[in-house]
Deep mutational scan, measured.
Amino acid sequence: MPVRRGHVAPQNTFLDTIIRKFEGQSRKFIIANARVENCAVIYCNDGFCELCGYSRAEVMQRPCTCDFLHGPRTQRRAAAQIAQALLGAEERKVEIAFYRKDGSCFLCLVDVVPVKNEDGAVIMFILNFEVVMEKDMVGSPAHDTNHRGPPTSWLAPGRAKTFRLKLPALLALTARESSVRSGGAGGAGAPGAVVVDVDLTPAAPSSESLALDEVTAMDNHVAGLGPAEERRALVGPGSPPRSAPGQLPSPRAHSLNPDASGSSCSLARTRSRESCASVRRASSADDIEAMRAGVLPPPPRHASTGAMHPLRSGLLNSTSDSDLVRYRTISKIPQITLNFVDLKGDPFLASPTSDREIIAPKIKERTHNVTEKVTQVLSLGADVLPEYKLQAPRIHRWTILHYSPFKAVWDWLILLLVIYTAVFTPYSAAFLLKETEEGPPATECGYACQPLAVVDLIVDIMFIVDILINFRTTYVNANEEVVSHPGRIAVHYFKGWFLIDMVAAIPFDLLI
């Protein structure tokens, strides 16, 4: 008679799926529990143990900040960024110097990925580790590398530091407007667009060049630039800015003055950032001319202004700041037409079709709590990747769950009947059967004279019903998954307890 339990259901295979997918890609990662103190490590794979030199037993239950890997060259700011990422709910990448158990130093890129439950609360953290440099290539500990984003994938490793954006290309926007319009339909740009040429040739750093990471940081200074100062900065030398009595002219307006920039070969870094931020506020060169004239017309309804409409929906549905990093990277690809469009465009503009998908598509409701890094690593669709929660398995109709209350009560009843059979069957065979043979035949009273025979008949009927119930009862397979398919249940029961239950259900007393 089957006594099969499996009270692990309803099970959740999400954690096993993450481990299996990460292991298949030869990654070095740990999984931490966000619900406990210090976000203790609950799993670390073999790749991480080989990377740091510690065994799994030495890593388990330690804080996922990996303070046991810190050393003299470990930056405090990087460690603080990892700790801050564990307090938030967004994906974050941090470069930090770690030390192995043998004392060797290596520069590592740590990717902190939160995993949320159905309520939107962070319950786990996945920390992925990628070695960037070994100890002989690690720089000085005073050099802070965590304020910069990861290198873009479309640049060669040897040319990542030679990417320079020439400031004269930004200063000569109005001069290039006529050349853009003359391109017409034969050019790649839309009317009114501004073409910015980027020099990728390796050259020595000069005062006129600005690194790509500095251009990325310009967006942080746009908020500090007032509207009046932006307007004066875009007017140009024809209309000098008016300053109040006793007030000095704005240095932001002076930063885009061609006369002032041409007199000296070098520009201050602050002026460069502010000038680029001011130019980015204009949607095209037409807006710059309109600002000089004193009238700013409404933005025209053409394809170039609607190019950012799908980007707005993608940004609203993005799951991490990696989408913004990807957008900034692609927006700086050289030799393309940049349409400086305000994100607050007309909502009635139709979304044009684009061959290049900048932001990841909208994630469906079932995966809105899973970050983009987890979705990318697992390579699963929205119909396959579940949320991290207890999910009731989908069972067929008329199927009994093996952990249901009805099955528990039924098993206790069958257990009592088995005990009765084990006690009274030998007793009936030894004593009652002998008395029946010696006594007179009682054929007239039937079952009324033999109450134990009636009980034995009921017990046999219950055993037959138990066999039928076992054909529709779920079970737990070797992978700790609840199986509810009727065919698989029948095959599993035939290979197991079916023969024993059938022999126990045969009414031998009635056959004798």
Rank of each mutant, 00 (worst) to 15 (best):
K28G: 06
N317Q: 07
L248K: 03
G236M: 04
Y43F: 13
I18E: 03
L107I: 15
A156N: 03
V41E: 01
A307Q: 11
S313G: 12
I288V: 07
T152Q: 12
A85R: 01
V370H: 03
L86A: 01
T13Y: 13
C108V: 04
I30D: 01
N117I: 12
R148T: 12
E365N: 15
S178C: 06
R5C: 07
N220K: 12
T174H: 12
V59P: 01
I96T: 04
R92P: 01
N117H: 09
R27M: 09
L338P: 15
E50D: 07
L380N: 04
M124T: 09
G224L: 14
E37F: 10
P157D: 13
L338G: 12
D197I: 01
F106M: 08
N33V: 05
A121T: 09
A193V: 06
P114N: 04
A307E: 13
V113Y: 11
R181C: 15
V41Y: 01
V94N: 01
I336W: 15
A97E: 14
A193I: 01
S55Y: 01
T13H: 15
S55N: 06
A360Y: 14
P237I: 08
L109V: 08
G149C: 06
T216D: 06
Q84D: 13
V3W: 13
V110A: 01
P298R: 07
L315C: 05
K373V: 12
H221K: 15
A268K: 11
S26E: 10
T371G: 07
L167V: 09
K93M: 09
N339M: 01
K364E: 12
T371D: 04
S275Y: 08
F106H: 01
P72W: 01
V115A: 05
P347N: 03
V325S: 12
E274Y: 03
P299G: 07
L256E: 11
A204H: 01
V180Y: 15
K364T: 07
M308I: 12
E274N: 04
R301A: 12
Y54W: 07
D355F: 07
N117F: 05
P63D: 06
V198R: 02
A34Y: 03
S179C: 07
A282D: 07
R73K: 12
E289F: 04
A204S: 04
C276Q: 14
P386D: 05
M124P: 01
L338T: 15
T65L: 05
L127H: 01
S243D: 13
G226D: 05
V122C: 09
N128Y: 06
A293P: 14
E177P: 14
C39Y: 14
T337C: 12
S264H: 04
Y54V: 01
A172F: 01
E357T: 11
P386S: 03
C44V: 15
G224V: 13
I330Q: 14
D259G: 07
F68T: 01
S179I: 12
M308C: 11
S206K: 14
I96L: 04
S153V: 04
M218W: 11
S283W: 01
A40N: 07
V94D: 01
R181N: 06
E134P: 10
H147L: 11
H70A: 06
T371W: 06
V115Q: 14
R4N: 14
K116C: 10
S250L: 01
A244T: 10
A307G: 12
F163C: 15
R326K: 13
V110E: 01
D144V: 09
R326L: 05
N257E: 08
Q84T: 05
Q11R: 14
F106Q: 01
K344E: 12
G224F: 15
T162G: 14
H7C: 07
G345K: 14
V295E: 15
L225T: 06
P227V: 09
S283T: 14
P241N: 15
E90F: 13
G238D: 15
P240F: 15
A78M: 04
I288Q: 04
R280P: 09
E23M: 03
G184D: 14
V222M: 08
G192D: 15
T305S: 07
W154I: 08
I19M: 06
E134R: 14
F98G: 01
G71F: 01
I336R: 14
G294R: 05
P72F: 01
N45Y: 01
I19G: 01
K332L: 01
G246Y: 14
R326F: 03
E37P: 12
F68E: 01
S153D: 11
D321N: 09
G47D: 05
R326G: 12
C108P: 01
L15N: 01
K28S: 09
Q11Y: 12
V113L: 14
F348I: 13
H368P: 06
A142S: 11
R5L: 15
P141Q: 15
G381A: 14
A290C: 13
V279L: 11
E90V: 13
L378S: 03
G246E: 15
L296V: 15
A282E: 12
R292W: 07
S379N: 04
G294C: 09
A32V: 03
L69W: 01
A282W: 13
C44Y: 01
T337N: 14
F14E: 12
H254C: 07
V198S: 05
A203V: 06
K362C: 12
V113N: 08
V59F: 01
E289C: 07
F48Q: 01
H254E: 15
L267S: 08
G120M: 15
I358W: 13
H147V: 11
S263G: 11
V3F: 13
S26I: 01
F163S: 14
D287S: 09
R35N: 08
F125L: 05
P2G: 07
V222E: 13
E134F: 03
T216W: 05
A172Y: 01
G24N: 12
M133D: 06
A32L: 01
R73F: 03
P361C: 07
R20Q: 12
S351C: 13
F98M: 07
P227D: 15
P168Y: 01
R164Y: 06
P347E: 11
E91N: 11
R312Y: 11
N220M: 07
G226F: 08
A193L: 01
N12S: 07
S313E: 07
V374T: 04
G306V: 07
P310M: 15
Q25M: 07
E50S: 06
Q84C: 07
N38R: 14
R269T: 07
E357L: 05
V295D: 12
V113D: 11
G314D: 09
S266V: 12
C105P: 15
T152M: 13
S351R: 06
A277D: 06
H309M: 05
F68Y: 04
K362D: 14
K332F: 01
I126N: 01
A121G: 13
T162E: 08
E58P: 01
P205R: 05
R164D: 13
A303E: 11
I18V: 11
G187T: 11
G139M: 14
G103L: 08
A217K: 14
D197T: 01
R281A: 15
V36W: 06
P249C: 10
H309T: 07
R92S: 13
G381Y: 13
C105T: 15
G158V: 15
T367Y: 13
F48S: 01
L315P: 12
A83L: 12
A203M: 14
D67K: 05
L343R: 14
G306K: 04
G381H: 15
V59C: 04
T371F: 14
R176H: 06
V122N: 06
L296G: 12
E208Y: 11
F98Q: 01
T270C: 12
G139Y: 06
G24A: 08
K135Y: 05
S283H: 08
P168L: 03
A34L: 01
R164I: 12
P150M: 07
V8Q: 15
P63Y: 01
I330K: 13
S178D: 06
L51S: 01
